[in-house]
Amino acid sequence: MKVWMKYTVKKFISLVISLLFTSIVTFTAFQVIPGDGALSALGMDATEKQLEEYREEMGLNKSLPIRYINWLKDALKGDFGYSSQYQMKVSALISGRLNVTLWLAVLSFLLIIVVSIPIGILSARQNDGTLDVLITLLTQVFMSVPPFFLGLLITLIFGIILKWFTPGNYIDPGENFRMFIRFMMFPAIAVAVPKTAMTIKFLRSSLLREMELDYVRTARSKGMANISILFRHILKNALIPVITILAMMLADILAGSILVEQVFNLPGLGRLLVSSIANRDYAVVQAIVLYIASVVIIINFLVDLIYQWIDPRVKRD
């Protein structure tokens, strides 16, 4: 078997194990939380007999491992139970909200990449020039603005003063897709700005670190032009640590940008989580936590694959 295949298979097996492990932890954690599942589902005035029937029906009086297996079977089929708060299936509830969060994530992640990579390179190439000093200071400023304050500022400037969008007036994509994207651009900017600043800072210092290394001097000794050295030799090396940061950010925004969703009144996953927590709607909380954990694990798996693709040293271990 080729080295890369072995590596991939190994990583895939550990992906599956991690997912299983996470599901066990999540399931157990929510079983331990005090409170009677039947009571919270049927309400305080249910009779003991009703409760007993409900427990029987839902398999609540079985042992923990059996309940877990039943739950996992249902979960694999996409059935995460019933939301007490919204009186609907958790899967249906989440898929509606997920749509919003995914769009927000895609838009803001694209913004981050498209803006930060060129600016990071520009800043590093000009090391300590006026433009670089300005970019460095600005990235520090933007990293310091809390995203929800930024959201408020964007609402104030673009929504209230310039009237480019109507604050709080979320438009469903099924209704008018263009207006939906137009509206979503503003929260996406609020999510992206601090993270873009962070990526620029990271990329810049990574590039500067690489530029000092011996292999760059070797490339110069060959008579290579600086710009070719940057793209052929330095950039790939410099991106290795940046990929880790980008992956963490992606996981972060896929988990739902709770604060920004709150500011812009978006019906996304983050706000669903907050309201489910507030109303102790544990079926929903459990499903969302499982979703987020899976996103994190799968992204880490993908990052491992990307690493082995660009860095030959990874396969060694």
């Binding site: 400023v141 310091s144 603005v145 408020l152 209230i160």
Partner: peptide, 24 residues
């Protein structure tokens, strides 16, 4: 936000300046 935008600016700036100062 509509009636008294200054209300948001002051605490928001305070957070921003705090974080900015320490990270610099």
């Amino acid at each position: 936000l509509l009636d008294s935008p200054w209300y948001a600016i002051a605490p928001g700036l305070m957070i921003t300046l705090t974080v900015l100062g320490f990270s610099l």
